[in-house]
Amino acid sequence: MGFKLLSKLLVYLTASIMAIASPLAFSVDSSGEYPTVSEIPVGEVRLYQIADGVWSHIATQSFDGAVYPSNGLIVRDGDELLLIDTAWGAKNTAALLAEIEKQIGLPVTRAVSTHFHDDRVGGVDVLRAAGVATYASPSTRRLAEVEGNEIPTHSLEGLSSSGDAVRFGPVELFYPGAAHSTDNLIVYVPSASVLYGGCAIYELSRTSAGNVADADLAEWPTSIERIQQHYPEAQFVIPGHGLPGGLDLLKHTTNVVKAHTNRSVVE
């Protein structure tokens, strides 16, 4: 069995187990497998329904001669939608809004960016022009300005110390501490036991640490421990890039980060 097929099978099995364990909360999309990078042309966006009122959005972007996937989250909030992270750029984010209108038909009224990198804030200006209120932590807003990236308009308070959590509509926002970046936030959907790890969490097929220019490698494993301790009931975990899975993604990420750190020390 090929690795790609095995990865998709694991996603399907995880979703099936969740649907059985929580039949009222989960209505997993039966329309197909989780979209992969090879299936999404740059400039297009796919939506994948995880649970009743919960979707991931998947886009792709060219970077350094390669094409990478990027995940975000959409959560229903009454007759409105909360968006977590842009679709990595203005063109993708405009396509995301169009796809949401086509498939869901509810307005996106608020959006949260989970850290300051372009795959999370690139497209904020498109959201703002569409009347979406954009939010991020003060740290993310400051770092985005320093980096020359787009800056969300509103500040999220109460997320300055490791372990801080605040309720934001249908989700809980959690600051686990520094990891992929010093400002990275985690998003949890309690009604569906869905954990969105953003770039602080890796997919299972990833074996290298990737972009760690703004990471705190020493603190990252401790931050992941905080996530595990705060959300032990999480059933569906979405990484910032690639295929979702279960809580095993947290341990896998820790292993990859520690291996990278150990290699760096040896070198």
Rank of each mutant, 00 (worst) to 15 (best):
1 M>D: 03
3 F>E: 09
3 F>M: 12
3 F>T: 10
4 K>S: 12
5 L>G: 07
5 L>E: 07
6 L>M: 06
7 S>C: 06
7 S>V: 12
8 K>E: 09
8 K>Y: 14
8 K>P: 01
9 L>G: 12
9 L>N: 06
9 L>K: 07
10 L>G: 08
11 V>H: 12
11 V>D: 07
11 V>L: 09
12 Y>F: 06
13 L>Y: 05
13 L>M: 15
13 L>E: 13
15 A>N: 13
15 A>G: 08
16 S>D: 13
17 I>V: 05
18 M>V: 07
18 M>T: 05
18 M>P: 05
18 M>L: 05
19 A>H: 03
19 A>K: 08
19 A>S: 13
21 A>C: 15
21 A>Y: 12
23 P>V: 08
23 P>D: 12
24 L>D: 08
24 L>T: 12
25 A>P: 07
25 A>N: 05
25 A>S: 08
25 A>D: 05
25 A>I: 06
25 A>G: 10
26 F>L: 11
27 S>W: 07
29 D>H: 05
31 S>K: 12
31 S>E: 10
32 G>V: 06
33 E>V: 07
36 T>C: 06
37 V>S: 08
41 P>N: 07
41 P>G: 12
41 P>D: 10
42 V>K: 10
42 V>R: 12
43 G>S: 10
43 G>R: 12
44 E>I: 11
44 E>P: 07
44 E>S: 13
45 V>S: 10
47 L>P: 04
47 L>E: 01
49 Q>S: 13
49 Q>T: 12
49 Q>P: 14
50 I>C: 02
50 I>V: 08
51 A>Q: 06
52 D>S: 10
54 V>H: 00
55 W>F: 15
58 I>W: 10
60 T>F: 08
60 T>C: 14
60 T>M: 09
61 Q>H: 09
61 Q>A: 11
62 S>M: 12
63 F>I: 12
63 F>Y: 06
63 F>V: 10
64 D>K: 14
64 D>T: 15
65 G>T: 06
66 A>C: 12
67 V>F: 09
68 Y>W: 06
70 S>L: 03
70 S>G: 05
70 S>I: 03
71 N>S: 08
71 N>F: 00
72 G>E: 01
74 I>Y: 03
76 R>P: 04
77 D>M: 09
77 D>G: 09
78 G>R: 12
79 D>E: 12
80 E>V: 14
80 E>L: 12
81 L>A: 12
83 L>R: 01
83 L>W: 01
83 L>Q: 04
84 I>N: 01
84 I>Q: 00
84 I>F: 14
86 T>E: 01
87 A>V: 01
87 A>P: 13
88 W>C: 01
88 W>Y: 00
89 G>R: 03
90 A>H: 15
90 A>D: 12
90 A>P: 09
91 K>M: 14
92 N>V: 03
93 T>H: 03
93 T>P: 01
93 T>C: 03
95 A>Q: 13
96 L>S: 03
96 L>W: 01
96 L>R: 01
97 L>D: 01
97 L>C: 01
97 L>S: 02
97 L>Q: 04
99 E>P: 02
99 E>C: 05
99 E>R: 14
100 I>D: 02
100 I>G: 02
100 I>N: 02
102 K>E: 09
102 K>P: 05
103 Q>I: 09
105 G>M: 11
107 P>S: 12
109 T>W: 12
109 T>C: 05
110 R>L: 12
111 A>Q: 10
111 A>I: 04
112 V>M: 11
113 S>I: 15
113 S>L: 15
114 T>L: 00
116 F>W: 15
116 F>D: 03
117 H>S: 00
117 H>C: 00
119 D>C: 01
119 D>N: 03
120 R>M: 03
121 V>Q: 00
121 V>Y: 02
123 G>A: 03
124 V>F: 04
124 V>H: 06
126 V>A: 06
126 V>F: 15
127 L>G: 01
127 L>S: 00
128 R>I: 14
128 R>L: 05
129 A>M: 15
129 A>V: 08
130 A>E: 09
131 G>F: 05
131 G>I: 04
132 V>C: 05
133 A>L: 15
133 A>E: 10
133 A>P: 13
134 T>F: 02
135 Y>P: 00
135 Y>D: 01
136 A>S: 12
136 A>H: 04
138 P>C: 14
139 S>K: 13
140 T>W: 02
141 R>M: 12
143 L>C: 04
144 A>C: 11
146 V>N: 08
146 V>T: 14
146 V>M: 11
146 V>W: 14
146 V>P: 05
146 V>F: 14
148 G>Y: 14
149 N>H: 06
150 E>S: 10
151 I>C: 08
151 I>L: 09
153 T>I: 09
156 L>W: 02
156 L>P: 04
158 G>M: 07
159 L>M: 12
159 L>N: 00
160 S>F: 14
161 S>G: 14
162 S>Q: 15
162 S>M: 14
163 G>H: 09
164 D>R: 10
164 D>I: 11
166 V>H: 05
167 R>D: 09
168 F>I: 14
169 G>K: 03
169 G>E: 04
169 G>P: 04
170 P>H: 05
171 V>W: 03
172 E>R: 03
174 F>I: 04
176 P>W: 00
177 G>W: 01
177 G>L: 01
177 G>H: 01
179 A>H: 02
180 H>W: 01
182 T>K: 11
184 N>T: 01
185 L>R: 02
185 L>N: 01
185 L>E: 01
185 L>S: 03
185 L>Q: 01
188 Y>A: 04
189 V>H: 15
189 V>F: 06
190 P>G: 06
191 S>F: 08
191 S>R: 07
191 S>A: 07
192 A>G: 08
194 V>C: 00
194 V>S: 02
196 Y>K: 00
197 G>N: 04
197 G>K: 02
199 C>D: 04
199 C>N: 00
201 I>S: 03
204 L>K: 08
204 L>R: 10
204 L>V: 13
204 L>W: 13
205 S>I: 10
205 S>N: 07
206 R>K: 14
207 T>V: 10
208 S>C: 06
209 A>S: 13
210 G>K: 14
210 G>L: 14
210 G>T: 10
211 N>T: 12
212 V>W: 07
212 V>A: 09
212 V>F: 09
212 V>D: 10
213 A>C: 15
216 D>E: 12
217 L>C: 05
217 L>M: 06
219 E>K: 10
219 E>M: 15
221 P>R: 12
221 P>A: 09
221 P>V: 13
222 T>P: 14
222 T>K: 09
225 E>Q: 07
225 E>M: 13
226 R>D: 04
227 I>E: 01
228 Q>E: 12
229 Q>H: 15
231 Y>A: 03
231 Y>W: 12
232 P>V: 09
233 E>Q: 13
233 E>V: 13
234 A>M: 13
234 A>G: 08
234 A>I: 09
235 Q>K: 06
238 I>E: 01
240 G>H: 04
242 G>T: 03
242 G>P: 03
243 L>K: 10
245 G>E: 02
246 G>A: 08
247 L>F: 05
247 L>H: 15
248 D>I: 04
248 D>V: 09
248 D>M: 14
248 D>A: 08
250 L>W: 02
254 T>N: 15
255 N>Y: 15
255 N>F: 09
256 V>M: 11
257 V>P: 01
259 A>I: 05
259 A>D: 06
260 H>T: 05
261 T>Q: 06
261 T>K: 07
262 N>H: 05
262 N>G: 08
263 R>I: 05
264 S>T: 07
264 S>Q: 15
265 V>Q: 14
266 V>E: 14
266 V>N: 08
267 E>D: 14
